[in-house]
Design a binder for these strands. Structure first.
Length: 852
RNA sequence: GGGCGCAUAGCUCAGUUGGUUAGAGCGCUGCCUUCACACGGCAGAGGUCAGGGGUUCGAAUCCCUUUGCGCCCA
């Protein structure tokens, strides 16, 4: 037997085996496999500029469990991983790390040295740098960040194929992203349009509906009267939380069924302070129970205003600019003197000024009434979103098209969700979309939109006839590359061309991970082997973004769903059932936990979290996992210590004892349950069943037969026990291998030359044993142990006589275990008598001890 | 406001198509220095299955309802 350490330990085994797997290529994808032999997995590329937390460990472990199971089932597992490095999170991290900010008007500076590399002082003013310099710093930092992530994932034991690695900013990703987009454009699935857009005034970029969230914020209703045109004695009172937008008012609106306002529909009123005349309109989105029941429509205060403006075909009277300030120029029809009081102010400052004016002039009715109301924010933003008109690129997603929406809902039904109820999140989201998917961002670090526009004679872009590159030129950067038929000196010249200055939102690229990871159109045959993927793994919080957008892109490009199964992981909650977050200071570093409890122990905790269920962070569970892994090492050592066993002889010829066959029948049943669980992506169930039989095996079966295995009853009886022990151990090690990859590999290596992770998933030994045969003997053993516990003697204490009373139906089973029971309980004589009751009972006579 | 999920031992959770006395681990209590494991082992105590109603021979499980918690969407 190979070297079994005297004292097996979990400490330090991770690096040793991770290196070995790397050397052996244990998890390398077999590119010669045909599609039916492949199990392909689409995993989330983590945002490398973010923090590493237990949420990553949790959900990535779930994916790995399934990957390892499928690999042991003989599948060629395609399990790539990528980093999501493009986008705003990286920009922010670069700003905070180097103390710089991107200013595209700055010239490029070769060999630029940033003022800091990490922790600039708080009072430091960010140094403006050119876009190319800024992007260089992005590239520099993500390389460092990615190494940290890779180290963690290797330590976690993810069985990913590191050769299939990608990043969302790398050349292949840019090519795939641009190619997919250009095909969307060609088919009319992507288009650009000048339209009202959700806008973050701090990041100065457009934001998609999926990135928007409601936050409860204090506000106040201001009751303001509008004088009716032609009837100075009559007023209409409105309640508004945004009096600063009075200048942008284009209409009032009430519900068509509201009898209070029906007489007024079509009449005009005068906006206080600013004097423009606006009409009273009817629309069913007006809420009669909100405020006074009639609202002002401004261009634009919120998304409902956009709907009203569009459907009621109202004027445009924009007053908020892209920097969030009130525009300098007075809109048409608005009193310039009143407007001058708010021009240049931020909305909150403007509100104070307007309320002051209203109060001074005695217009405001009563005091403002404070309320809490939901306000729309960019999920990363700090000030409320505004709505500005701007030209942006969109991909159709059913938000403006019922047929497409229904198609995408139908696609959702082609995916099996785990757990199933997560499909509701998807459908809820698709049904609630109110516009197409905005993919352009006015930012810097990302995949450039591969489009130029011709400039007309006056130098204005002709947006209707964009210039697109041939696919074989991709990826391109329109700010440096030149469209076919033009020369570089025509850039920005009348009659020349201009590059689209924007980049894609991160989701526009990460929605293509199946294409990117699978080398779509890279002509190496990989894509056809892996697509559509077998499995998408992700957290349930990004169903509306990543899951939905990936289905949308696949639907447009291929007319199929990108994967057959979507496995959703839950969140990690802290022990108080709150979502863990850095701001609450309750985030623990995964690496420390790996060191403290062993990686396998942490994986055990993750594996016990059921699919889709939010799970409490629990170091107690990690302790249990450590105990399990430790026990596996020790019981393996013990089972393998009984001398050589002829593993070539037929199992049925060697394992003859009905007790041994009964145990193996129990293991068979567990193998079936674990297999059923894994086939349904329910790794937690597989773990629970496996763990249960494992502890039973250690505590009961091993204790019962170890004397026989020591040859107390002769060589044949010993051979049956030894072979059964090894058979069971082999199955148990393999059943646990997905969960405890390091400990099982360690223990497996003591008696095999190849990896347990390349071994086949266990199958039933099928010796025809009765799984219940052993139970009566174990029950009797438990009663003997109890008697010794109650007598407060050692479990090794001798028992002079054991009288078992049992129903006659159990006598044969008890006879089968009689000799093992006598040895395990140190029992001199055992009698088995019929019992009147159904239950088994024991009368234990403990032998007198020789007091020394 | 619409939708989804959850409620079982002090804690974390299993409990599959309804079927004997509702299970596990942790924690707690007692015992055992036992030759694989003291990072261990053996045993014990601990439950009105959130409340109410219904279906059924039989309900933690199915139906209705109330309450509480969480999430998604508007």
């Amino acid at each position: 037997m190979a070297n079994i350490p005297d004292r097996p330990t979990l400490d330090g085994i991770e690096d040793r085996w991770a290196d070995q797997w790397d050397t052996d290529g244990t998890y390398r994808f077999d590119t010669s496999a045909v599609r039916s032999e492949v199990f392909s997995i689409d995993t989330p590329p983590p945002t490398v500029s973010g923090s590493l937390h237990m949420g990553h460990v949790f959900s990535y472990t779930h994916t790995d469990l399934v990957a390892r199971y499928q690999r042991m089932q003989g599948k060629a597992v395609f399990y790539p991983i990528g980093w999501d490095d493009n986008g705003l999170p990286t920009e922010r991290r670069v700003q905070n790390f180097y103390g710089v900010r991107c200013d595209p008007s700055q010239p490029y500076e070769a060999g630029f040295e940033p003022p800091f590399r990490g922790d600039p002082p708080k009072k430091h003013q960010a140094v403006p740098v050119s876009r190319p310099n800024f992007l260089e710093l992005c590239d520099e930092l993500i390389e460092v960040d990615e190494q940290v992530f890779e180290a963690l994932y290797r330590r976690l034991g993810l069985s990913v194929d590191w050769e299939q690695h990608y990043a969302t900013i790398d050349e292949r990703s840019r090519r795939a992203s641009q190619r997919a987009f250009l095909r969307n454009v060609e088919r009319g699935e992507a288009y650009s349009q000048e339209a009202p857009t959700l806008w973050d005034i701090d990041f100065r970029t457009a934001v998609a509906q999926a990135e928007m969230e409601d936050r409860e914020r204090p506000g106040a209703y201001h009751k303001i009267p509008f004088q009716v045109v032609g009837d100075p004695a009559s007023t209409i009172e409105i309640d508004t939380t945004r009096p600063e937008l009075l200048a942008a008012c284009v209409a009032l609106v009430a519900h068509p069924d509201d009898e209070r306002f029906q007489p007024h529909f079509g009449t005009k009123v005068i906006v206080p302070l600013y004097g423009q005349e606006v009409e009273i309109k009817a629309h069913e989105l007006a809420q009669p129970d909100k405020g006074t029941g009639i609202a002002m429509i401004c261009t634009f205060g919120d998304t409902t205003d956009v709907t009203w403006w569009r459907e009621l075909q109202l004027d445009l009277r924009v007053i908020i600019g892209r920097d969030g300030r009130i525009l300098a120029d007075t809109p048409s029809g608005v009193d310039p003197d009143a407007y001058a009081m708010i021009a240049g102010k931020y909305p909150n400052q403007a509100q104070r000024a307007v309320v002051e004016q209203l109060t001074e002039q005695g217009i405001l009715i009563g005091e403002p009434r404070p309320i809490e109301h939901p306000v729309k924010f960019y999920e990363r933003g700090e000030r409320p979103l505004e709505i500005v008109a701007s030209r942006q690129w969109y991909i159709r997603n059913g938000g403006r098209d019922t047929d497409l929406r229904n198609d995408l809902i139908a696609r959702g039904h082609e995916v099996t969700f785990h757990p199933d109820h997560m499909r509701h999140r998807y459908e809820n989201w698709v049904e609630g979309l109110n516009g197409d998917w905005l993919i352009s961002r006015q930012r810097f670090f990302g995949v450039p939109i591969p489009i130029w526009y011709p400039l007309d004679a006056s130098g204005e872009p002709v947006y209707d006839t964009p210039l697109v590159p041939a696919e074989d030129r991709l990826p391109i950067d329109p700010s440096t590359d030149v469209p076919d038929g033009y020369t570089a000196d025509q850039r920005d010249q009348p009659g020349g061309f201009v590059g689209d200055p924007d980049i894609f939102d991160t989701w526009a690229t990460s929605s293509l991970t199946p294409q990117i990871a699978g080398h779509w159109e890279e002509d190496d045959g990989l894509f056809e082997k892996v697509f559509p993927y077998d499995m998408r793994a992700q957290g349930h919080d990004i169903i509306r973004t990543w899951l939905f957008s990936t289905i949308t892109r696949s639907h447009h490009e291929f007319g199929v769903v990108p994967w057959n199964h979507a496995a959703l992981s839950g969140w990690i909650l802290d022990p108080d059932r709150k979502k863990m977050s850095k701001s609450k200071g309750n985030v623990v570093t995964p690496m420390d936990l790996f060191d403290q409890y062993s990686t396998d122990a942490v994986r055990y905790w993750a594996g016990s979290g059921r699919p889709g269920v939010d799970t409490a962070y629990s170091e107690e569970q990690m302790k249990v996992g450590r105990k399990l892994a430790n026990k596996l090492l020790n019981v393996s050592k013990f089972v393998l210590s009984f001398g050589d066993v002829d593993m070539d002889a037929a199992l049925a010829d060697t394992v003859t004892d009905p007790i041994d066959r009964s145990m193996l029948a129990k293991v068979d049943a567990t193998i079936a349950e674990a297999t059923t669980g894994f086939d349904a992506f329910d790794y937690a169930r597989a773990l629970e069943r496996t763990e249960s039989i494992f502890w039973w095996f250690c505590d009961n079966y091993v204790e019962l037969v170890k004397s026989r295995a020591y040859e107390s009853l002769g060589p044949d009886a010993a051979a049956s026990a030894r072979r059964a022990l090894r058979e069971a151990l082999s199955s148990l090690q393999r059943l646990l291998a997905p969960f405890l990859p390091f400990a099982t590999e360690e223990a497996w290596s003591w008696w095999h030359d190849t990896s347990v992770h390349a071994a086949s998933w266990p199958t039933a030994s099928d010796l025809g044993g009765d799984p219940t045969t052993i139970d009566a003997t174990i029950d009797a053993l438990t009663l003997v142990r109890r008697a010794k516990s109650e007598a407060k003697v050692s479990q090794r204490a001798e028992v002079a006589a054991l009288a078992i009373s049992a129903p006659e139906s159990l006598h044969a089973a008890l006879e089968a275990g009689r000799a093992d029971l006598a040895a395990a309980g140190s029992i001199e004589t055992i009698t088995i008598d019929p019992a009147s009751a159904d239950a088994l009972s024991c009368d234990v006579t403990i032998a007198p001890t020789d007091d020394v």
